[in-house]
Computed example of a mutant assay.
Amino acid sequence: MREGIVALLSGSLFGAGLAVSGMMDPKRVRGFLDVLGDWDPTLAFVMGGAVLVMTCAWFIQKRLIQPVFADSFNLPSTRLIDRRLIGGAVLFGVGWGLAGLCPGPAIGAFVVEPFSAFVFVGGMLAGMVIHRAISA
């Protein structure tokens, strides 16, 4: 129960951050990717802030025996960079560039622009189902 409340609060904070920073607006994301046109650097500042917070979190995590709200840390077991990782990153980047959304902002965009979010999330879920069917 406690972990669910922490997850809800964390997700709400993340969603609020996306809304305040304007990252649920596909035009802002496309503006960031348009480096030769009307470039919008806002996303660079959002990413920089996220990297700064995550860097601090990694330093804190190294000094902790276990997380505050869980029994153990859930860290990646490998650092392997393989075809699947690169392919997934490319697919993510292409989808992000075309739609101007990625999974987090797409869920939040249901409030702002439900139709576009529905199309994106529907495609994302279809891709997840296809991946599971192919990988099984």
Rank of each mutant, 00 (worst) to 15 (best):
M1W: 11
R2H: 14
R2N: 07
G4Y: 06
I5H: 05
I5R: 07
A7S: 04
L8W: 01
L9N: 04
S10M: 13
S10F: 12
G11F: 00
S12L: 13
G15R: 01
A16Y: 12
A16I: 10
A16M: 12
G17R: 07
L18W: 06
V20K: 12
S21N: 10
M24P: 00
P26M: 01
K27F: 09
R28T: 08
V29Y: 14
F32A: 04
F32W: 04
F32V: 03
L33G: 06
L36M: 13
G37N: 06
D38H: 06
D38A: 15
W39R: 06
D40T: 05
D40M: 03
L43Y: 04
L43W: 05
G49V: 01
T55K: 07
A57N: 07
F59A: 05
I60M: 09
K62R: 07
R63V: 05
L64A: 07
Q66H: 13
F69I: 11
A70S: 11
S72C: 09
F73Y: 04
N74E: 12
P76H: 05
P76M: 07
S77L: 00
T78Y: 02
R79A: 14
L80R: 14
L80P: 03
D82R: 00
R84E: 11
L85M: 12
I86D: 01
G87Y: 04
G88A: 09
A89M: 15
L91A: 15
F92H: 12
V94D: 08
V94R: 12
G95E: 11
G95L: 10
L98F: 13
A99Y: 04
G100Y: 02
G100V: 03
G100P: 10
L101Q: 01
P103G: 09
G104T: 07
G104C: 11
G104K: 10
A106F: 05
A106H: 00
I107Y: 15
I107G: 09
A109M: 10
F110L: 13
V112E: 02
V112W: 11
V112L: 14
P114N: 09
P114A: 03
P114L: 07
S116P: 02
A117C: 06
A117F: 00
F118T: 15
V119L: 09
V119M: 08
F120H: 10
F120G: 07
F120S: 10
V121Y: 00
G122A: 05
L125Q: 08
L125T: 11
G127P: 07
M128F: 11
V129P: 01
I130L: 13
H131G: 15
R132D: 12
R132I: 14
R132V: 13
R132Y: 09
R132K: 14
R132E: 14
A133D: 08
S135M: 14
A136I: 10
A136W: 12
